[in-house]
Amino acid sequence: MATQGAIVVDKERCKGCGVCVVNCPTEAIALSHEVNGKGYNFLSLVNPEKCIGCANCATVCPDSVITVYRVKI
């Protein structure tokens, strides 16, 4: 069964390390060109339609800034 997901990123806590990006199986996420208050290029869900809600990004996130949602479709 297919799933569709979405993530919410706590932008101000994100340090833009990018470990999540390489662990995303669907290229749904990327570091933003914008920076947060600390000057980090924070994570962004750039291709929301590709997100399957697998939580890989959140699992490897050292700063626990990603909340993951998922629905069955």
Binding site: P62, V65, T67, R70, V71
Partner: peptide, 25 residues
Amino acid sequence: IIKPENKVYGKTPILKDNILHYCPG
């Protein structure tokens, strides 16, 4: 999709809200 009932992963409440002092990654 972003509704409480669809949440599958988030920060555990055992972790405080303090921002970690560690380097990125």
